[in-house]
Amino acid sequence: MKPYISIIIPAWNEEGSIAHTLRHLQDQADLLFNHAMRVEIIVVDDGSCDKTYEAAWPWADKLIKHKRRCGKGAAMQSGVAEARGDLLLFLDADLRSTAGRALVLIEPLLRHEADMAIAKLPPPRTKAGFGLVKGLARRGIRRLSGYETEAPLSGQRAVRADRLRELGELRRGFGVEVALTIDAARRGLRIVELDVPIAHRETGRDWHGFVHRGKQFAAVSMALLSRWKERKQVWYSSDRSSI
């Protein structure tokens, strides 16, 4: 039986990018796989207030729309619920002409060398933040799971559907990738990280950029706190059972 790949793209107010991303992704999938695999593209519009839904319509195999914004993790979870593939590929909506390059993440899963593959993106072309969010995420993942990552914030990742569902529901908001990496490492999933020349929208050192990174810092902090509480609860339960 042909491998079945579900490509899940959460999107919020991506009217200007989503069609470009989906078109290039579809073209590259046809070129690389040449009907050797079954592929479906699932777009989840997370309560956009622009025309993201209409722009994605001609290119998506399945299109889901949230009535209100629920967060990136919730959008990813909605995509998982509708996915039929045994391999899942999560991509951001703003990759545009570089989207097809992410398909390389499927290869380690097809070779049964990994359960999850994460894309390491090239350095940003312009200076953005000061590395605080990425540093926090890397340290938190290492301390809470023992896994040393170079791409703690990457939203571009492939994972085996059966192993993902073992982990339970995804964290609802931003910070979902950090929580997912911790959960996967704790459960013993084989994780690899690959250099992939993907480019997406960058934020600069302006007010908008600082606000965005502030929200990201808060989201990552909350994700780490939730996983720390879970680990503490496990320790507490273990101590109680040994009494």
Rank of each mutant, 00 (worst) to 15 (best):
D162M: 04
P197W: 09
K65D: 02
E107V: 08
Q233N: 14
L153A: 12
F210N: 01
V176C: 12
R165H: 14
L164N: 13
F90H: 13
Y53E: 03
L225G: 03
R84E: 15
P197F: 08
D45P: 05
L194E: 08
S154N: 11
E202Q: 15
G129A: 11
G146C: 03
M1E: 14
H112T: 04
H24K: 04
R165W: 12
R68E: 12
H20K: 01
F210V: 05
I198C: 11
K127C: 05
A114I: 09
V220W: 08
I9L: 12
V39I: 07
A75T: 07
I64F: 06
A19R: 12
G175W: 11
G209K: 01
P108E: 10
R186P: 00
K120I: 14
F174K: 15
S97Y: 14
P152F: 15
H208P: 02
E54V: 01
R96Q: 13
G209F: 01
V196D: 11
F130L: 15
P122Q: 13
G214Q: 07
V104A: 11
S48C: 00
S6A: 12
I9P: 01
A219V: 03
G16Y: 03
A36Y: 14
D46S: 01
E14L: 08
R171I: 06
P197E: 05
Y4V: 06
R163L: 11
A114H: 10
P123I: 00
T126M: 08
S238T: 03
V104I: 11
D183F: 09
E230P: 04
R69H: 13
L189N: 05
S238D: 03
T126D: 02
R143P: 00
A117I: 04
A75S: 13
R68W: 04
T52D: 04
A158C: 06
A19H: 09
I182V: 11
P197C: 09
A75F: 10
E113P: 00
G188C: 06
Q233E: 14
V220M: 05
V80N: 10
L63T: 07
G204A: 05
L121H: 13
T21K: 06
R84M: 13
A60L: 00
K134N: 15
H35F: 10
F217P: 01
R125W: 13
G146W: 03
L95I: 06
L95C: 11
G135Q: 07
L164Y: 13
D30F: 14
R96S: 07
S48P: 00
A161I: 04
R69N: 15
D239W: 08
M37F: 05
P10W: 09
H208C: 06
S17P: 00
K232A: 12
A74R: 08
A93H: 07
V159F: 07
D27Y: 09
S238L: 10
K72P: 00
K67M: 12
G175H: 14
V192L: 08
R139L: 15
S154E: 10
A56G: 00
R96T: 13
V196Q: 09
Q28W: 07
L63H: 07
L63Q: 08
H20G: 00
K120F: 04
R227A: 02
K72Q: 10
P108R: 05
W57N: 01
Y236H: 02
A117V: 01
K229G: 02
I7F: 03
I9S: 05
I8C: 11
